[in-house]
């Protein structure tokens, strides 16, 4: 028996009115796999993450997580659109880090990290705090635990956001252009934390990124999106070293030229 993919996009489409953002996406991601999504803006790459996080509904197809449907549920042997209770059950396996951090501004770093474990998972405060302290230590911000987001740099805020997402113990982590809003000198500290996360935790990771160097070094697989479809995918060495598709070549050329 082959292992269930951690995530499966099965012929998923997303449209806004007449505009098709994703067109029949098929994508399997294995347990523990690190997948980077690259491509020009408007190619639908962020939408992939947002659909998986259920921030966007889908128009066609089914998204599966560990063999269970996320966007749908089974009723009388048929798949029907999922209700909120079902979505929340499956969504618990997924965490996300955003481009604009989205920390809760009225809470300290520590409070940001214990809020959902307490209210959603029902953890005891002391346990949640112990776990949050560990995670803040992992992202190198033990000393900033009582600071409010407005007192932290962008890189520090993003590291807190990563700790906050990890505190929910997701199996899948989504990173949506997490370094795009950062000053260049702060990018490194955030990427370092993601590297560490990949090494030390058994996480499946899916990231949309413009950091080609990082994608190349970190990912098991890179997907190049163009016009709502996966145009080309493969191990980073192949995709970056010898792209087969003309559009991939053009994109990489343009990006590497600029970088």
């Amino acid at each position: 028996m082959t292992e269930q993919p951690m995530v499966r996009f099965d012929n998923v489409s997303k449209r806004y009115g007449a505009l098709t953002v994703l067109d029949g996406l098929n994508l399997d991601i294995a347990r523990g796999e690190k997948v980077s999504i690259i491509g020009p803006s408007g190619s639908g790459k962020t939408t992939v993450l947002r659909m998986l996080m259920t921030l966007e509904t889908i128009n066609d197809g089914v998204i599966w997580v560990e063999g269970e449907p996320l966007t749908h549920m089974e009723r009388n042997g048929k798949l029907v659109p999922a209700d909120l209770a079902h979505i929340r059950k499956i969504r618990a396996k997924i965490g996300m880090v955003f481009q604009s951090f989205n920390l809760f501004p009225h809470m300290t770093a520590m409070q940001n990290c214990i809020e959902a474990p307490i209210t959603v998972l029902g953890m005891k405060r002391a346990d949640a705090e112990a776990r949050a302290a560990e995670l803040l230590d992992m992202v190198g911000l033990s000393e900033k635990k009582d600071h409010y987001p407005s007192q932290l740099s962008g890189g520090q805020q993003q590291r807190v956001a990563i700790a906050r997402a990890c505190a929910m113990r997701p199996k899948i982590m989504l990173f949506d252009e997490v370094t795009s809003a950062l000053d260049p000198e702060l990018v490194g500290e955030v990427l370092e934390v993601i590297r560490k996360l990949g090494r030390e935790h058994d996480l499946t990771m899916l990231m949309v990124t413009h950091q080609m160097g990082f994608a190349k070094e970190f990912s098991d697989r890179v997907c190049f999106f163009h016009a709502g479809k996966i145009c080309e995918q493969g191990p980073p060495n192949e995709l970056f070293g010898a792209p087969k598709n003309e559009r991939t070549r053009q994109f990489l050329h343009a990006v590497l030229e600029a970088g």
């Binding site: 929340r88 997924i94 989205n102 959902a116 959603v120």
Partner: peptide
């Protein structure tokens, strides 16, 4: 809007989001 999205990503229910994240702000 990012506050709603972050709360969703942390799997909060709507009442939890409102009570703990949105209304205090």
């Amino acid at each position: 809007r990012g506050q709603w999205e972050a709360s969703t990503a942390l799997n909060m229910s709507r009442p939890q989001m409102l009570r703990r994240i949105i209304l205090p702000q």
